[in-house]
C-alpha cells in the first residue's frame, strides 16, 4: 500500500467497480487538492456518479484505494464511513433531496442536528447560510411550497452548513434552467473558495466545468484527457437504417 501525497485531500488509485457485471469504473486514479474546485466531466453513463459515490464513501470500490486526508476510506466499515460523511463531507445531488416534513431551515440544519449540535446553534448556522444564499425569508416554509431552484439552494445551504472539508456535487444543476444554473454554481464555488472547502463537481456541461479550477475528463469508466469521440460518418445512420432488424 502506497501512502498518498500530502497535499491531496482525497486520493484515489485505480478504482474498479461494476454493477452486477455491468462496468461502472475501470481503473480511475485521481487526486483532489485541498481547497480546489475540481470538475469531473463526461457524458451520461461514463461513471461520474459512481466515482463520486466511491470518493464520498457511499460505495466501496471492488478494487482500488480511496484515501481521505491520509486515512484509508476503502477499508472502513459502514459505520465509520457514515460518520465520515456526516462530519466531513457534504453532498448535493441533481434532485434537491429534501426531507418533506421539515421546514427550510430545519432541512439546512439537518447535518448539524444529526451530529448532535444544539438546536439553537444549528438554527443560527442554518439561518446564516440561508441568508447568504438569498433564501432567508423562506426559512419557515415547507419544501413543497417552493420552486425547484429555491429547493436546490436549500440543498446547497445544507451541504455548506455542516462546514465540511469536501462537498460532492453530482450534476447539481441538472433540473434547473440556464439562468438559475449559473447563479447557483457561482454561489457554490464562491462560498466554497471563501471558506476553503474542496468541491468535486460532476457535470456533463462544458460551461459548468469552466467555473472549476481543474477539469478531469471521463469516458466509459476511464479517465481521459480528450473527451471528444471520432466523428461519425454521414452515411452511417442511413446504412444502419437499411439493416433489417
Amino acid at each position: 500500500m502506497v501512502a498518498p501525497p500530502d497535499n491531496d485531500v482525497i486520493w484515489a488509485r485505480s478504482l474498479h467497480h461494476s454493477y452486477n457485471g455491468s462496468p461502472g469504473l475501470s481503473g480511475v486514479s485521481l487526486g483532489v487538492r485541498d481547497g480546489e474546485v475540481l470538475a469531473v466531466t463526461g457524458r451520461r453513463g461514463c461513471g461520474k456518479t459512481t466515482l463520486l459515490n466511491c470518493l464520498s464513501g457511499q460505495l466501496v470500490p471492488q478494487q482500488g484505494e480511496v484515501w481521505f486526508n491520509s486515512v484509508p476510506v476503502h477499508t472502513m466499515g459502514p459505520r465509520l464511513r457514515e460518520q465520515l460523511r456526516r462530519d466531513r463531507f457534504g453532498w448535493i445531488a441533481a434532485e434537491p433531496q429534501l426531507v418533506p416534513e421539515l421546514s427550510t431551515w430545519e432541512n439546512a440544519a439537518l447535518p448539524l442536528l444529526l451530529r448532535g449540535v444544539s438546536h439553537r446553534a444549528a438554527k443560527k448556522a442554518a439561518t446564516e447560510w440561508l441568508e447568504r444564499l438569498d433564501i432567508g425569508p423562506l426559512a419557515r416554509k415547507r419544501p413543497h411550497t417552493l420552486l425547484q431552484s429555491q429547493r436546490q439552494r436549500i440543498s446547497v445551504a445544507r451541504a455548506l452548513t455542516g462546514s465540511p472539508s469536501v462537498i460532492f456535487a453530482d450534476e447539481p444543476t441538472a433540473t434547473l434552467h440556464h439562468t438559475e444554473r449559473t447563479q447557483l454554481l457561482r454561489t457554490l464555488t464562491t462560498a466554497a473558495r471563501s471558506h476553503g472547502i474542496t468541491v468535486v463537481l460532476a457535470t456533463h456541461d462544458a460551461e459548468v466545468a469552466a467555473l472549476a479550477d481543474r477539469v478531469v475528463g471521463m469516458l466509459d469508466g476511464r479517465r481521459v484527457t480528450n473527451v471528444s469521440l471520432p466523428a461519425a460518418s454521414d452515411t452511417e445512420g442511413r446504412s444502419a437504417c437499411s439493416l433489417s432488424v
Binding site: R79, R85, R86, W91, Q97, L98, V99, P111, L114
Partner: peptide, 11 residues
Amino acid sequence: TAGTLLRLGAP
C-alpha cells in the same frame, strides 16, 4: 426520505 438521510450520513 430514508435514503436521503442515510446519504447525509444519518446513522
